[in-house]
Design a binder for these strands. Structure first.
Lengths: 216, 216
DNA sequence: ACTCGTATTGATTGAACGTTCAATCAATGG
DNA sequence: CCATTGATTGAACGTTCAATCAATACGAGT
């Protein structure tokens, strides 16, 4: 019944999901190639190998498919950390290891791709004038802070110091990512690797300092 | 001769400069009010109290006036530090003081204004697909790094450690600024003040750590 | 008062874009 | 083998916007 196959190997019920993902991929590709302003219904649908009308059919309009693409990016980031934590579920993950995983997730391959970097920047710029996107942005920003704070609390006794450590680390991750993205000369991962290294070094210095306990 | 006054108090030769600045101000105001996408020739010229044609006359087109507005922002940032250093020229400015000045400049009032924050984000997003803007971005990004490195070199003996300190501080400044801007709920300066505090605390911790000298 | 030159206007144009919807067609069900 | 579904198309439409340019306003010089 639901398992009946079409000749192209697609289940009828799956077509919608498949098309939506194809259009989201095409949207990210278009933003990568032509920029946010240069992305139109035509560039997206052409990259997807479909007609222009299909976008309104599945997403209600251009605004819809772009919002969906952003949600996809946010979801990738969220799942990235979940998967990595899951991978180390057998053994016990120390607070320090967990912090390193958070850093690695934020500098993972997908987050370095052109389509992702360009879209993130456009997303932030648009979030300042679009309440729906602003809400998504805030949730995402909060998640990074909370994840960091959770681990820092287990490493730093003083609550205020733990909060400061989390805020600093969040800023350093975002700042490193931003500067790496903007200064990406050709297609070198060098900047991202260095950024990841420095973020991890910073976390270790925070832990080491707090080990010496009593400051301020 | 050149000092001849018009009835409105403007020098003929100055009219062009005055009009250009008025249009740049109007452009920033429009981006603040309507966003980057919502900014058109009409919104700018209306805010400036002039007609739409004037933009093409003075800037050759919309692209021209927007580029000029971005250049103005970059110049403000550059001059901000110069002025502050100049203010303390009489007495000797210690390397640490100079670092704090750099932080203060990046969180100065003008950089917190809506018109500036929105334009910065739009500028970054556009820089990824516009070579002219990308060049401006790189120069600006480099300046922050160089300024920081110059002072850190006087405080940290190991060259590699000084370079890392500068890179980390640059990222923290940009990251703190970004997160403050994006999470600006209503119109609270609270986030910016906290960001400035943490950046300064971070610099002090870098200096203190290097004082203990020999690490790695 | 009159003219010249510059500054400015704003209606108009043409291109670009998002949306709509009647028509098409392959895949299903009977 | 015919009827029905619904996924997909793409031309047409209305809107938006940057750019243009002929017309106008206005100060300066005589």
């Amino acid at each position: 019944m639901a398992g009946k196959q079409l000749s192209n190997g697609l289940n009828r019920a799956n077509i919608e999901g498949v098309r939506r993902q194809q259009l989201i991929d095409a949207t990210l590709k278009s933003i990568e190639l032509y920029g946010f302003q240069g992305t139109t219904i035509v560039t997206i649908s052409k990259l997807a190998g479909m007609s222009s009308g299909i976008i309104s059919h599945y997403f209600g309009g251009k605004q819809g498919v772009i919002e969906a693409a952003v949600r996809y990016l946010l979801e990738q980031l969220k799942q990235g950390l979940l998967l990595q934590l899951q991978a180390g579920q057998a053994r016990q993950v120390s607070p320090r290891e967990r912090l390193m995983m958070i850093v690695e997730t934020n500098f993972a391959g997908f987050q370095r791709s052109s389509s992702a970097t360009v879209t993130w920047l456009a997303f932030w710029a648009k979030a300042m004038h679009d309440p729906a996107l602003a809400r998504l942005q805030r949730v995402n920003s909060q998640r990074l802070s909370s994840n960091l704070l959770y681990s820092f609390r287990q490493l730093i006794a003083d609550p205020a110091a733990a909060r400061d450590a989390a805020a600093m680390t969040a800023a350093m991750i975002d700042g490193m990512w931003l500067r790496s993205t903007l200064n990406l000369t050709p297609a070198t991962d060098e900047a991202f690797n260095e950024a990841e290294r420095l973020c991890k070094a910073f976390i270790d210095s925070l832990i080491a300092t707090s080990g010496r306990a009593d400051e301020v």
